[in-house]
Computed example of a mutant assay.
Amino acid sequence: MDNSYTASIGQEQGVDKDITGPRVTALINQIQGVDQGITAASKKNKIEPAVAQGLHARAAHINQAAKRTAAAGHGTIPTPQYQELLHQLDDLSQKLRAETGSAFLIGNGADGGYYPNGYGPNG
């Protein structure tokens, strides 16, 4: 395996295998920001209460995993776990956008404009 591929901006996998300090705090803040977006969408009736509850549960799970991993690592998160948490957060954020009807439109519109084929707020 090539240890020189980029794990994140300005960081080589072989050089720094842990995410520390401000990036851990930023990750937790991003999770809380998405959770606040869920609350705002719910208050504006852009998503059903049951959907909001499910999205909140996913945000809480990601938040707990980030805090638990950072605590176990004395304030650090190994790069693979950090990337997995970011991936989960991105999935949650995309789900929120799809549920509120603000998902990104892609393609020529033949599939409703959502990727993958036809996936969208009503799909």
Rank of each mutant, 00 (worst) to 15 (best):
A40Q: 12
A103S: 05
E99N: 06
G120H: 10
I47M: 02
A66G: 00
E84R: 15
N117V: 10
P116W: 05
K67A: 06
S42V: 06
Y115E: 11
R97L: 10
S4P: 06
T39I: 06
K46V: 09
G37A: 13
L96N: 02
L86H: 11
Q94H: 13
N3M: 13
P116H: 03
H87F: 09
M1N: 13
Y119T: 14
S102G: 01
D35R: 15
P116K: 03
G21H: 05
I28F: 04
D91P: 02
A66Y: 00
G10C: 00
E99C: 04
G21M: 05
I9L: 07
A50C: 03
Q13W: 15
Q88Y: 05
Q83Y: 04
L96D: 04
N45F: 12
D111Y: 14
H56F: 10
I77Q: 09
N45A: 14
L27F: 04
V34Q: 09
E99A: 09
P22M: 11
G107A: 03
D16P: 09
V24E: 05
D16K: 15
H61L: 08
A40N: 11
D35A: 14
I31V: 07
E48M: 12
G113W: 09
I106Q: 07
G120P: 07
D2M: 12
H61T: 09
Y82E: 03
N3A: 12
H61A: 10
A71F: 02
A57S: 02
G54F: 08
T20A: 10
G113V: 11
T25Q: 04
L92Y: 05
I9C: 04
Q30I: 01
D18R: 14
G75Q: 08
L105W: 06
D111H: 13
G118H: 12
D91F: 04
T100G: 01
G14F: 13
E12C: 11
T100K: 02
E48V: 13
A52L: 02
N117Q: 11
R97W: 07
N122I: 13
G120I: 04
G10K: 03
G101E: 00
Q32P: 02
I9S: 10
Q13L: 15
A60P: 04
A59D: 01
Y114T: 12
T25D: 04
S8G: 08
D90P: 01
A26G: 02
A71S: 02
D2I: 15
R68M: 03
A110N: 13
G109M: 05
A65N: 07
D18I: 11
G101Y: 01
V51I: 13
A50D: 12
L105M: 07
G118I: 08
A40C: 06
N108R: 10
N3I: 14
Q11R: 12
E12K: 14
A26Y: 01
G123M: 10
D16N: 15
S102M: 03
G14M: 15
N108A: 12
G123I: 09
I9G: 06
Q30V: 02
T69Q: 01
V51A: 09
M1I: 15
G112F: 09
T76P: 06
Q30D: 09
N29H: 04
N108Q: 10
E48S: 15
G37M: 11
Q88M: 11
